[in-house]
């Protein structure tokens, strides 16, 4: 059974399923650990699954004046989040059949489309907090974009390709690749991007109920029932996708399957989830050790990320990269 050789298509499907099914687990573990760090017992690790099941059983409500966009958007976003795992090295060291469909920028665009549609749904509602969340999310999204580009450039010039797989292979090739300044800086910049995009301290408090401080969370306040479930699930998947990119492209691309044997693919699934949870713990610690920035200070945080990204490219051209 263990040395059953899977077809690449099956691996591809497993890859998507890992993200789809693993995401709530990672989210649940982080909130559990976060609670423990604060001295609480915290929710069960599997709580996000129960939440999703519960939400899927509820009825769907939409604000009176909203159009079809309001209900379509969660599905668009969800599909986007299902597409991205095809493009990035989640489980394997080699590209799967659809892996070369889009490069790292393509993946970025699809994530941006998801964010855009959620924000659009937020503005549909006419509710002030949802609109506030949407407009903030778009503003900071636009500000983080240059950093993402710089990180992509850095990864691109180091490997001379724009494929996430190649980047991962380069990092794996030797220890000095991990240490090279351009790479360290790009990884740091991307770390800050992940902090921002997953709505973590110091940008946003993840579990707050204070609407004024909300950015990403605010957008979905008006949703209910299955669409809301899709949004929550999508947001968990987005988090895991970003973690996966950070881990498998920049920081620790080890433990990936180098063939399509069932045993190694299963091992890779476990390795990914374990690494994601470790990373999640780091984020939880950051969550608990810093305070949220004032809204107008967030630009400084993003500026710092941009600085790191730019330095990374500069250092590379200087010959020291």
């Amino acid at each position: 059974m263990g040395n059953l050789n899977l077809s690449p298509v099956v691996v591809q499907i497993i890859q998507v399923l890992t993200i789809l099914l693993g995401a709530p687990l990672v989210s649940g573990t982080i909130s559990n650990i976060s609670a423990r760090l604060q001295g609480r017992r915290g929710p069960r690790v599997l709580q996000p699954y129960y939440d999703l099941i519960k939400l899927f059983q509820k009825e769907t409500l939409a604000p009176e004046d909203s159009s079809f966009v309001f209900l379509l958007a969660p599905m668009v976003a969800f599909v986007c989040y299902l597409t991205v795992p095809l493009l990035i090295p989640v489980l394997t060291t080699f590209g799967l059949p659809l892996g070369y469909m889009g490069d790292i920028l393509g993946g970025g665009f699809i994530l941006a489309l998801a964010g855009f549609s959620v924000a659009l749904a937020g503005t549909e509602t006419g509710a002030p907090y949802a609109q506030l969340g949407s407009s903030r999310a778009m503003t900071f999204g636009a500000l983080i974009e240059p950093t993402v580009l710089m990180v992509v450039f850095a990864a691109g010039i180091i490997t001379s390709t724009d494929l996430p797989y190649a980047m991962a292979a380069t990092v794996r090739s030797s220890a000095s690749e991990i240490l090279r300044p351009a790479h360290v800086l790009a990884a740091l910049a991307f770390f800050m991007v992940v902090l921002t995009d997953t709505g973590r301290i110091p940008v946003e408090s993840h579990s707050g109920t204070l609407e004024f401080g909300m950015i990403d969370e605010g957008r979905t306040l008006e949703h209910s029932g299955p669409p809301f479930a899709l949004l929550k699930w999508g947001s968990a998947m987005k988090q895991l996708i970003l973690y996966t990119i950070l881990i498998d492209v920049f920081v620790a691309p080890w433990g990936l399957a180098s063939n399509t044997l069932l045993s190694s693919v299963m091992l890779a699934v476990l390795a990914l989830l374990a690494k994601a949870i470790v990373l999640g713990v780091i984020f939880a610690v950051i969550d608990n050790s810093f305070s949220k920035l004032r809204l107008f200070k967030i630009t400084e945080f993003l500026a710092a990320a941009f600085l790191l990204g730019t330095l990374s490219v500069l250092i590379f051209y200087l010959g020291g990269g």
Binding site: I157, S160, T161, T170, S176, L179, R180, G320, G321
Partner: peptide, 13 residues
């Protein structure tokens, strides 16, 4: 792809 500098150079950089 561009060759990486030595680990020593990396660390000091």
């Amino acid at each position: 792809q561009a060759p990486a500098p030595s680990s020593f150079a990396d660390i000091s950089d």
